[in-house]
Amino acid sequence: MIRSKQRDLTKAQMMTLPTPRGRLSLNRSLADLTWLRVGGAADAVFQPVDRQDLAEFLAQLPQENAIFPMGVGSNLIVRDGGLRAVVIRLGRGFNAIEMDGDRIHCGAAALDSHVARKAAEAGLDLTFLRTIPGTLGGALKMNAGCYGSYIADAFVGASGYDRAGRAVSYDAKTLGFSYRSSDLPQDVVITDITLRALGRDEPERLHQKMAAQLAKRNETQPTKDRTAGSTFRNPAGFSSTGQADDIHDLKAWSLIDAAGCRGLELGGAQMSPKHPNFLINTGRATAKELEALGELVRKKVYDKSGLTLEWEVMRVGDPKDD
């Protein structure tokens, strides 16, 4: 859980913000930048045009201004009081994808699904990324995975900039990957990631494999609703493999279902009737309601099983003053 330390971006702090070449928006609402469509405003949102623009902005940004790197908001609840930070949001200048043998060099803003498709066109297998929502930078931060494969399995290296605008780089050892997490510092902005294909195959076969994965996802998950993906991590410590012998006893959805929380509602928030580990904004939810429903589910699961579910969805910012 991430909470802001400052209450407001003062006029003096606004006057000391750098003047970048990219777009800098003050007091920018984040609700329309997240998949759940909830949350207050950030102090500022910065969209750099290139790496030099980003590095110079970070170097010139006063140290008292916190930063928050953000992708497309696919795994995020921004609280209703907003976020006391400068959000760094990478865009078109950071989404290139290039092949080099069995390696795939990607900008951190590249969508996971796009990386999977482009790799498949070259006969390279990163098909596990096809159904993971969001950007590769976000996937790296949380060591995203599906069907038994994770970013850590394909990861070669990454680079970006620290809070002072200095170039930094990481390998698998320094990132300390574990289930649904990594040791990537919160105030580092990753710009480039290199992956290694998990195998090779004919492009047509890889695309067929991904089509089957998509069909299964659409059949079992609420893909047409406002969600942020899986709400809680599996206590088992690994993702679903998609195989017939997959064990469900310690999967979050199974525990939620057993606790009677499938379809549970609180205000405009709901646990999906289709897949109970998906938290849904039915169209009128607040961030407070979504988080409160998640906490209620955690309590009910603990009361039923003695197991404590850990949030997979990141929650940031301040609650709204009543």
Score class of each variant (00 low, 15 high):
residue 120 A to Q: 03
residue 131 T to A: 11
residue 134 G to Y: 11
residue 137 G to F: 12
residue 62 P to A: 05
residue 213 Q to H: 00
residue 297 V to T: 04
residue 64 E to G: 08
residue 22 G to F: 07
residue 165 G to V: 03
residue 306 G to Y: 10
residue 141 K to W: 14
residue 195 L to K: 01
residue 48 P to T: 11
residue 160 G to D: 02
residue 278 F to Q: 02
residue 10 T to A: 02
residue 209 K to D: 00
residue 76 L to C: 11
residue 70 M to V: 05
residue 27 N to L: 13
residue 55 A to S: 04
residue 85 A to V: 07
residue 161 Y to Q: 13
residue 181 S to K: 11
residue 147 Y to N: 12
residue 19 T to L: 12
residue 248 H to S: 11
residue 287 A to T: 08
residue 184 L to Y: 15
residue 212 A to D: 12
residue 280 I to K: 08
residue 74 S to Q: 04
residue 52 Q to C: 14
residue 195 L to V: 02
residue 74 S to C: 06
residue 164 A to Q: 15
residue 31 A to Q: 10
residue 162 D to Q: 12
residue 213 Q to C: 07
residue 268 G to Y: 10
residue 12 A to W: 06
residue 237 G to Y: 12
residue 159 S to W: 13
residue 291 E to Q: 03
residue 315 R to A: 12
residue 277 N to R: 05
residue 8 D to I: 05
residue 189 V to M: 02
residue 214 L to A: 06
residue 144 A to N: 09
residue 68 F to A: 00
residue 220 T to H: 13
residue 16 T to C: 14
residue 84 R to S: 03
residue 94 F to C: 03
residue 214 L to G: 08
residue 103 R to Q: 11
residue 185 P to C: 01
residue 27 N to M: 14
residue 289 E to P: 00
residue 150 Y to Q: 13
residue 184 L to N: 15
residue 114 H to F: 12
residue 109 A to G: 04
residue 55 A to E: 06
residue 27 N to A: 13
residue 214 L to F: 12
residue 5 K to W: 13
residue 96 A to Q: 09
residue 196 R to N: 06
residue 122 A to G: 09
residue 34 T to P: 09
residue 193 I to D: 02
residue 283 G to M: 10
residue 295 E to M: 13
residue 246 D to H: 15
residue 139 A to R: 12
residue 131 T to P: 09
residue 16 T to V: 14
residue 285 A to C: 05
residue 108 A to M: 02
residue 307 L to R: 10
residue 214 L to W: 11
residue 168 V to P: 03
residue 263 G to T: 10
residue 84 R to V: 10
residue 305 S to T: 13
residue 118 K to E: 03
residue 87 V to T: 02
residue 70 M to G: 06
residue 2 I to Q: 10
residue 59 A to Q: 05
residue 79 R to L: 05
residue 141 K to T: 13
residue 145 G to R: 09
residue 319 P to K: 01
residue 204 E to R: 10
residue 189 V to S: 02
residue 73 G to S: 02
residue 252 A to D: 14
residue 305 S to A: 14
residue 185 P to T: 06
residue 110 A to Q: 01
residue 171 D to V: 09
residue 295 E to S: 09
residue 24 L to M: 01
residue 57 F to M: 01
residue 93 G to F: 00
residue 94 F to Q: 09
residue 62 P to Y: 05
residue 223 T to D: 04
residue 308 T to W: 15
residue 105 H to V: 10
residue 279 L to T: 00
residue 201 D to I: 07
